[in-house]
Amino acid sequence: MPDHKDMGLSKDFNPILQNSSFSIVNAPSLDRSNVSPIAPCACGIGLKPSYFDEIFSKKYDGDFNVDFFEVHTENYMAEGGNTLHNLDRIREEFPISLHGVGMSLGSAEGLDMGHLARVRRVMDRYNPIFISDHISFSVVDGSYLNDLLPLTYKHDSLKIISQNIRQMQDFLGRQILVENPSRYLSFVESDFTEVEFLNEIVNQTGCGLLIDINNIYVSAFNHGWDARHYIRSLNGQAVQEYHLAGHSDRSWQDDGHMKIIKIDDHGSNVCDGVWQLYRYVLEIIGERPSLIEWDQNIPSYFTLLQESKRARDYMQNIKEGAVGKAS
């Protein structure tokens, strides 16, 4: 076991480390390394305030352990209130990751430094294992368009998003993860495929990747991509977290033809197709902390625990399969 101090990581930093039986690769410093500060086989869920009571009651401890919780950073940017206090309590027992939806990393006009300062305030308060946001933009001319809008995969976009990511990492003093988007359109002009664009961002900024398996599934369907080729083309070393979520189909008639687009709405169970893709990701890239997201039609806490357990079971099955082959 490496010395925690060598990694710039105190034992208090991560409750999982205190009881750990897993090993962590040596790294010179946590700040910009590709080393996850949490067990690769960790499974977590997206935290909702409605789950606080059940979490505090510990009624599902045992088969349904949660290794970490993820929150939307913007939901914890208030000055005070019970929601922040409850997250303080959760943080005493669990690692937290911060997942932003508002940094607008692809903004041609640059970052909103006021928002970045708010991210740092939340980071300082909760000392998260990951800080992530998206390969997208949402701020234009001072207005916040509340969606993860698609970037053109061109050299000018690459330049601006890399610049913004470097600025965010410098300001926070640590590495961030960026997530592949769900996309409903492609632009007429492109210099890169999405995977090439992601890998090039990693090369230029040293950031990590948060790979959303559902987003690959949705975008592959919407654009006719080969999802498995996408996964094989990713810089697996840079991948530090997986997301799993549900989506829905939007369909309509156009000139007598049925049109279908898959929408990443985080409002249902992870579908079988996404689970199969997750299995493939585990085989090709390997275990990474995996998180279930569910942001609409919020289900019971138990439902999310079941989904999280399923992710854990997939990881276990892959491990057992590997052991079986070896012996």
């Binding site: 509340n146 969606d147 409903y184 359109l185 632009f187 007429v188 939007r250 687009i261």
Partner: peptide
């Protein structure tokens, strides 16, 4: 709309998805 590839679905319908997502969420 001229910047978006149709690819079997009209550009305006593809853009409408983002527009709906934004308005619905607000």
């Amino acid at each position: 709309e001229t910047q978006v590839m149709a690819n079997g679905i009209a550009a305006k319908d593809r853009l409408k998805i983002y527009e709906n997502n934004i308005c619905h969420s607000l």
